[in-house]
Amino acid sequence: MTDTQPDLRALPLPEALAWLREHGEPADPRPDIDTASLRRRFPRLAHVRTRDLIVEAPSGPQPARLYRDDTVAHAGAALVWVHGGAFIGGHLDMPESNWVALELAARGIPVLAVDYVKCLGDVHFPAPSDDVLAGWRYARANSAELLGVEPGALLLGGASAGGNLTAGVVARLRDAGAAVPAGLVLVYPALDPDGARPGTTPDPESPFAQLSVNYGGSPAALLDPHAFPGLGSVGGFPPTLVVVCEQDALRPSGEAFAARLTAAGRDSTLHVEPAADHAHINEPSHLGAARTLAAVVAWIAARW
């Protein structure tokens, strides 16, 4: 890293937040993760069409991007996808959003990737959740035109913090008596205040707890099942795929959630990605990333 761009992961959280507020998210130094480079690396992506959109959300206009490939057979379902970033970073051009959406669209699963406000100061829950909920409602209201499916064939999913936000939106929809997604895809989700120790009181000094308090806005928010859906009821959840990574410290959070779904009689599938760590689908060259996407496609194909 340069003197002007520190390793944000090594900084105390308040310093990292201050740097991000002042400078914005640093550019990814990888030279081969832009869309043109990805199409050259993976020729199967050549026919995926993208369209940038805006979702009017409570935090202000949020970017979204539509992905479709009309040269392949439609899978019968479409996906609203939400990237991660510890609630403080991430964007639609990161591979966890852009490459994942390109790959799924190339396999006949249209995708609307949506963004949300980041928790970099006075912003806390429910602001990011509200934005994801707005993105979901936008997709549902325009599903036939944008994604080629009726609302009943629309899935929701996300990775890491995006997994938290999408599971939380499902809980909010259920508790409001609204229709929930047809299915839920959670990839290395952060569903508990301390994802390494679900069901325990978080250590306030731990990095997980600090990020969770920054997201929730207060220690009291660590008890809110809409903010941390690993704490709440799983009744009424749709068919759910949970992907965890063998080497990920957050693995217990996803495994505990999948087990609770199964115990409650819900349709739950757990996929453990071997020899992979957190954020592996943010690296297109990772062999486990390709396996994870294949597992997502197979899970969707088996149900729609």
Rank of each mutant, 00 (worst) to 15 (best):
G254L: 08
R260E: 02
G60S: 05
L79C: 10
W304M: 01
T71I: 05
G183F: 05
P239V: 03
V149N: 10
D277Y: 07
A196Q: 11
A101G: 09
V100Q: 12
A167F: 03
N282W: 00
P202F: 04
L154M: 11
F125Y: 15
L191E: 12
H278V: 07
Y188P: 00
V132M: 08
G177D: 10
A27S: 14
R51E: 15
G90H: 06
D267N: 13
R107L: 13
D28K: 03
V82C: 11
L184S: 10
D3L: 14
W136L: 09
V170D: 08
P204K: 11
P274H: 08
A167T: 03
T35F: 00
R44S: 13
A167P: 02
L250P: 00
P110L: 08
P151H: 03
R197V: 01
E22A: 15
A276P: 06
V117A: 15
D248T: 03
Q210I: 02
A301D: 15
V117E: 12
L191W: 10
D3E: 15
A18C: 02
L11W: 05
A134K: 10
L147Q: 08
V100M: 13
A134M: 12
P189M: 06
L66Y: 08
V187S: 09
V123G: 06
S218H: 13
E205G: 15
R303Y: 04
L222E: 02
G168V: 01
L222P: 13
V117Q: 12
A46R: 15
V297C: 12
A264Q: 01
L250D: 01
L222T: 07
P95G: 11
P31R: 03
